[in-house]
Design a protein around this nucleic acid. Structure first.
Lengths: 342, 342
DNA sequence: AGAACTACCGGAAACGTTTACAGCTTCGAC
DNA sequence: GTCGAAGCTGTAAACGTTTCCGGTAGTTCT
């Protein structure tokens, strides 16, 4: 019963096949300088014994571990799970694995973590919503670390590879949808103003209004300052107590939209009859609340997959041509929007 | 710009400190057979150069990689993210890392994955909600794999270490709460009947009713067969169209509870005035819906942490006396419950 | 004063791979 | 019939640690 389970090594496979370990290694790694019959023989033995190369040994010898670190703030579960699952799946297809490193709140730890993570543990990393400044990231890159930023929080300088969603275009779609329904007084509840997501969505909002020939009223744009429900409630209350309140609110994420709906309800307004609300993100909760939320879907899984693709390319060839990828967003129309009351 | 960034090795630290690599290794690993002054000298140099042991090398040499795998079905994001973040944090405190392996739908892959994961990659694993039968798990254990099961889906036989939530006690609390409000016709919407979670919660439900001297009416227990919202809607509709409908529903998870609320609302019943609803899990969504859901909180983070504790004990060969840990659940009273209409 | 510890440290062998290099065939061309 | 090239394979040197084993110096005991 004490099967100590000492795993089968390349040595044993080699002996069994009557070849050298070098040959086994070549077969396992798909090199092409092996004769067809040797290859088949070795492959059969490998299969029969369920041999897989010891990753530590491979890591030591070849300098690549097949592990990718993912630094992600666990505070946004609904958001990060999409990215993670996309990334994990894409990595799996390359026989690589994902090492999860939750970046808690403490900033100072973060930059050191990338560093530590890389050393002898992972070949590269995905940084999701990093706190780091562009400068710090640039420095990491120059030190030879290989990573891709997913959904940068601050604008990035040229050479840092990144994947993000088409914030502006998504915001545009949202506003156009509301315009199409006949709304003219369309408010915006924005997130923290130093986030790329906020700035780009704001740009999209203004652009859409502008090309419909509408001047955005400054009092209709309120800064929630965060992404949480409570902030959404508060911002919406400000909007709804205006002398001439909006007939529609575009909230810059789903949480804020939920807050807006709550604020409306507590004033006796019903959504969407008296007020239309659009969110952004399309997290799971969007379909849980009533009415189900019209919102802009971020392609989270796809972002994860794309980030992996970029990173692997980065690791293979040393030079990286495509630096920044922006993935399309799409408006999902549900029940929280309708033509204005009048 | 081609700073190849060759990391500092133990060799260099040793040279710098004028000692052998063996001594550096001892210091770094906190062995006690090093003189105080040598230790301090080495520690200073290590700190100055930011040296960390290459994990691949350590893994090869010592047979331990400091990585543990977590097999988790990514289909339940709200649920797993709590466990993951608890586990990751606990691991971090032991300077270990978490390798994420999403177990998609394909069952056959799962058992092989544990196996593959262990070999030269991780020292052990956490299996969250495994599909495997107790027998298969037992076999894995005997092959020398070290793992802890988190929230077993099927009942486990003796020797498999596991962490789970106090399903029965939580269910009891929920029912007692409803009884305390004055409810007598309390229905249950159960999950898939072969899950431990379902069976235990059912046991708690019956026990609480029983000790209040109430015989559970069989027609008040309906099997949703899954954990999704749609199933909850359907089950609740069956309950509400009974000749003598319940005044309260205990749904076996939050999704089902959301479904129940929807079903009630679409019949013109309002929650909690006409119908009380209690959920189970306390996922993020519970606070998003209106009314906010009264529900039984599972200590997800704590489960993750505890699983790590158990696993690390298992790896250290400190023989483990406690095989199965059950963590307490706690009723969180919010707005979806109230005294019956009378 | 010698023996027996103890505390500390270094040498060197492992750990399981990858890969540069060299060696052996075989074959076509001259 | 020799030469070079091409195709295949084996040898052995890395990769960066941990840890066993042995050695030296100092200390205590008898």
């Amino acid at each position: 019963m004490v099967s100590v389970a000492t795993r089968v090594t390349i040595r044993e496979i080699a002996d069994l096949a009557g070849v050298s370990i070098a040959t086994v290694s070549r077969v396992v790694n798909g090199r092409d300088d092996v004769s067809e019959e040797t290859r088949e023989l070795v492959q059969r033995i490998v299969r029969e014994h369920g041999y897989t190369a010891n990753r530590s040994a491979r890591g030591l010898s070849a300098g690549r571990t097949g592990l990718i670190g993912v630094l992600v703030p666990l505070v946004h579960p609904a958001y990060f799970s999409g990215i993670l699952s996309g990334a994990a799946e894409a990595l799996y297809e390359h026989d690589m694995r994902l090492v999860l490193s939750p970046t808690r709140h403490e900033h100072d730890r973060e930059v050191g973590m990338v560093d530590r993570l890389m050393h002898g543990v992972t070949d590269g990393a995905l940084l999701v919503l990093p706190e780091e400044s562009s400068d710090e990231l640039e420095r990491l890159l120059e030190q030879g670390n290989r990573f891709v930023v997913v959904d940068p929080r601050s604008p990035l300088t040229g050479s840092i590879p990144s994947v993000s969603a088409a914030h502006a275009s998504g915001a545009g779609q949202a506003v156009e949808h509301l315009l199409g329904l006949g709304h003219r007084r369309i408010a915006a509840i924005t997130g923290p103003h130093d986030w790329v997501a906020t700035e780009d969505r704001l740009r999209g909002y203004h652009a859409a209004l502008g090309s419909a020939g509408i001047m955005a009223a400054p009092e209709l744009v309120v800064d929630a300052g965060q992404w949480e429900i409570a902030a959404g409630v508060e911002a919406a209350e400000r909007l709804l107590s205006l002398p001439e309140p909006p007939t529609a609110i575009f909230a810059f994420n789903d949480n804020l939209a939920v807050g807006a709906i709550r604020a409306a309800r507590s004033r006796g307004l019903s959504v969407p009859e008296d007020l239309s609300v659009v969110g952004f993100d399309d997290v799971e909760q969007a379909t849980v609340i009533t009415p189900e939320l019209t919102t802009v879907r971020q392609p989270l899984e796809e972002m994860g997959r794309m980030a992996v693709t970029l990173l692997i390319r980065l690791l293979d060839r040393q030079r990286f041509e495509t630096l920044h990828v922006e993935l399309a967003t799409r408006l999902v129309v549900r029940d929280s929007t309708a033509p204005p009351a009048s």
